[in-house]
Design a protein around this nucleic acid. Structure first.
Lengths: 113, 113
DNA sequence: TCAATATACTTTGTAATTCTATGTATATAG
DNA sequence: CTATATACATAGAATTACAAAGTATATTGA
């Protein structure tokens, strides 16, 4: 299981990244994440839905209910332009921290930092 | 500036990683992180010291005061065996999330997740 | 000489956040 | 016909991070 902190730090980028692939809805997003992570990341609905609401409030995604005869009503989310921009920023920050960690993992002792 | 969440998610690995390089003390650790990140990550003392105390309480690091005639008293920290183990676990978790994010960043549209 | 800044560590309290738990409801599989 | 899966929502308990304030010494430079 992935730690709380790491989950929190990656949630925004993961959701935006998934929606950049194509529109989706809460329940399916949870399953996609589980599948993508090989079961290592598992969001409860109570964890995910509030995040979706916040992202929508912040204008990074937008929703619309779809009614179909085949399935139950679903609230589909779509990434906005602001959301795509936010995703780039998330990526940049992640890579920055990743760079620091890679230095530490690969470093020989007594490197001068 | 790196977001709060990302900072929180990486703090433990970064501190343990730095101490694996060699013993150090709070004030210096703050400066090392700043240097390693090119100024992007900047911990306040109020942020770092409580983390050091927690890591010590958890047995991942241990401290001893050093008195010197040249400098002021410093509390040096040293990583423990348990700390080295914890660092490996942190690394593994980070890489796991990193794998998911890389998939999302590189994915072509309509990949089946 | 003395003021400002850098070094060095500590802790309290609160502000913010998280997510567990609970609720609603329908569809389907066995 | 019931258990499970699908689908979304939210209140509030519980946690937690960290800004702010405190203590104290060393050094720089005006």
């Amino acid at each position: 299981m992935i730690s709380k902190n790491l989950t929190a730090a990656s949630t925004k980028a993961i959701i935006l990244g998934i929606l950049k692939q194509g529109n989706s809805y809460g329940y399916l997003i949870i399953k996609k994440i589980k599948k993508m992570s090989g079961g290592k990341m598992e969001y409860s609905d109570g964890m995910l839905y509030p995040v979706l609401h916040r992202l929508e409030k912040d204008g990074l995604i937008q929703s619309n209910w779809t009614m179909s005869e085949d399935t139950r009503p679903r609230k589909y989310y779509e990434i906005t332009e602001a959301g795509k921009q936010a995703l780039l920023e998330e990526k940049e920050q992640w890579l920055q921290v990743n760079t620091v960690l890679e230095k530490l993992w690969n470093l020989k002792p007594d490197t001068n930092y």
